[in-house]
């Protein structure tokens, strides 16, 4: 089975901290983990992904933006990104091979496993790859480039399953 299952990432929020902030202390304040570089952690029904030197994405409807902003105070900011990205789940034995056709980063190395995150270029589009358990990966694609990326992946033999599942489970 080699399927691409797209879905909107309407609840996506960017969380930015300042260079040098005490991340561990802020984790305690926020009540959830802020993973290290190239990593993601599940939080409730969503995920926290480290996508930049001092930027995290919070993906899921369980994150309370107002509460987070209050907790951060002057130590960081959050910015909603809903609508800017499409999330697509890669389900199949060769999702790593698909990424090697699209980009120039090492998706085949054994250390790129569950909980890994890579901000990279796929099909010339800035994307973010998140490896989930059970040999599944999710790719965040800019909304304006989603049609282009999906067309390239279909050419590679992957099938777009247009109807997203009713319940989006991790």
């Amino acid at each position: 089975m080699t399927d691409l299952i797209p879905s909107p990432a309407d609840d996506l929020v960017a969380l930015d901290l300042w260079r040098g902030e005490d991340v561990a202390r802020l984790e305690a304040v926020l009540g959830f983990a802020l993973p290290g570089p190239g990593k993601a952690v599940p939080v409730g029904s969503g995920y926290v992904l480290r996508v930049g030197p001092w930027r995290w994405w919070l993906d899921g409807d369980g994150f309370d933006g107002g509460a987070i902003a209050s907790a951060l105070g002057e130590r960081g900011v959050i910015t909603p990104l809903g609508g800017a990205w499409r999330r697509v789940r890669l389900v199949g034995d060769d999702w790593r091979g698909l990424l090697m056709l699209s980009g120039l980063f090492d998706a085949e190395v054994s250390s790129f496993g569950p909980g890994s995150v890579a901000s990279t270029l796929l099909c010339h589009a800035p994307c973010c790859v998140h490896v989930l358990p059970d040999a599944v990966a999710e790719v965040y694609v800019p909304s304006s480039l989603a049609e282009h990326c999906f067309a390239e992946w279909e050419k590679a033999g992957w099938k777009i399953r247009l109807a997203a599942p009713a319940i989006w489970s991790a």
Binding site: A14, D16, W18, R19, G20, R55, E74, G76, V77, T79, P80, L81, G82, G83, A84, W85, P142, S143, S144
Partner: peptide
């Protein structure tokens, strides 16, 4: 030198 200011590209966030 690392000002405390986030720069978030919201070009695709906002139509």
């Amino acid at each position: 030198d690392g000002a405390r200011a986030a720069v978030v590209d919201v070009g695709e966030r906002w139509a």
